[in-house]
Every structure is written in structure tokens, then in C-alpha cells.
Design a protein around this nucleic acid. Sequence first.
DNA 1: ACCATTTGACCAAC
DNA 2: GTTGGTCAAATGGT
Length: 305
Amino acid sequence: MSILSETLITKRKRLIGELVKGKKIAAQLQTLLHKPLKNNGSVSAEDLTAKILRSFTETLSVLSSNETSQIYGGDTAVSACSEESENKPAGVKDLRGCYKRRRTSDSRKTVSPTMEDGYAWRKYGQKNILNKEYPRCYYRCTHKYEGCKATKQVQRIKEDPILYQITYFDHHTCTDAMTATQIIVDSDPVKSLNLFSFESKILLNPSRSMIKISSSAKEEPKQDAHSEMSDIKSSLEDSNLWQEIVPVKQKSFVHAPVWDPKTRSYDHHDQEVVSSFYSCTSNSMNELDMEGINQWCDIENIHFD
DNA sequence: ACCATTTGACCAAC
DNA sequence: GTTGGTCAAATGGT
């Protein structure tokens, strides 16, 4: 496939994604502006939003109807796929295998005891990988058809405690990025900034007797996040109940509000989070000194999986 | 009926 | 020829 054709496909997909997004926003606006403002024969806000929605619908309709022939019709590698499809019933597009193997340079790897990361993913494949004990699972963002290109691969790497190596590709462009942040942080941007940037965070997983300590390392802290994290780690290491299970620190990224002193406003960036994992050497979490854990951090900052 | 997952097919990259 | 990433029909769950 030529670079030109690839660019064309990417542009068209982005265009459709943006239009779908715009249509949704216009629909939300219509709901918000539901009270009629029409008087003196002027056009109401409702009329306007209805027109916007119709415009989006019409554009999408035109693009979708021409998409197959225009995008997949003019290039050798892809047209070979189209030719294969000629034997299939009308209207059925079989594009299996018509893709480029992705480069790993854009990827971000992370190790986690849970697959959950706050985003909505849809599984689209699973594969047995050579020399790997467990199959690799492939996920894409549920908002793929609205233009979000984020995908991830999940590879289970350890049985007990269960650990997953998660590789992320591309970034979320969907509104789910905001939702994901709000799952973890407070709705108040200042408070959430404190939670994420300046304070260490403890996640407990009672079912797997596992604890995770995370701390953002990027922002200049009001209170030294690193030293606070060291204190928590020392407390854990002093205790016979806990054992560090991931000696190399996890470096992952979260989408969180970051204060920009130049614009004097909060912006959302991917920021680095350093995490350590500990497993409980005891058989039961019931034996744990929860009051002791509460001393390490504010109870409100504890998240249960 | 709708939506998510499973699974075999397909093929680019190696 | 083999491996890994993606697609989409089939299947399952609600």
C-alpha cells in the first residue's frame, strides 16, 4: 500500500471519528438547551442544534457510502484484499489480515496485578505466543469507531501472585480519558491534583493479598512525594507480613490534571507514576493491621480493586 | 435483541 | 515456513 493511500485512509478515519464526536456533542448541547428560546420569529438554539445534527448525519452518510470503494479501491496491496472479497456475498467486506504490523516504538509497557485501568476496552483477539505460558490478549478502546485509536496487549506473566504485562499503543482521544481520571481522582481539580501529584497512593487488593504503592514523580511536590513513599515502603519492609514482589519499579502513565503556571490553568497530560508491588506473606488479609495501614496514608486515598 | 467475547482465518513481517 | 496482529462470523450472556 502506498504512503499516500495510507494517509488518505487515516485522514478519512479521523474525519469520520471527529464527525461522530461532533454529532454527539451537538446532541448533548441540544439536551442542555432544551428550553425553547424562539421568539419574534428568530431561530431557536434548539433549531440550530437540530441543524448541526442533521449536517453531521448527512456528512457521515455520504462518507460511509463511499468509504469502501474510495479507501480500498486504488492501491495494490489493499485491492488484493478487495479482490478476495469479490467471492463473498454483496455488502460483506472481509478485511481480515489487511493491516500493517505495528511498530513497538510507540508502545508503553507496564506490569500490573490487575488488567483494570479505568478505561473501557473491548477484546478483539487472543493469541498463543511462542515461549509464553499464557495467551496474549488484544484489546481496543470501545470508542474505536468514534476515532479513538488506543489499543493494549495484555500478557499474563505470573501465576501467584497474578501479574500482567500490559503494553499500550496510541493514546485515548475519546472522552473516556476524562472518565478514567475521575474514577481515580476527586471531582475537585485542586484536590485531585493533590491526590495524584503530591501524595503517595495505596491500592489494596484483598482477594489477592496484594498492595500497590504509587506516586507521581513528575510534578514539583508541596510535600515530598518520594520521601512519603519511602516512609510507606519502610513501614512495609519492617513488617514481616509484606514482601516486595516487583523489584524493578513500575513506570506507567496516567491521564491526570496538571497545573500549567504559564496559562494558570489545569491541563490533562499523561504523567509518569512510579509504583511498587508488595504481596502479603500471610494467608489472610484479616491478619493485617488495618489501623497501621491507615497510618501510612489517609483512608480516603485507599482504593479497593 | 443487543452487546461483548471467542475463535479460526487471513496475511505482513520476519 | 513461522509468528504475531487484526478481522469478523459464531457464540454466549444479559
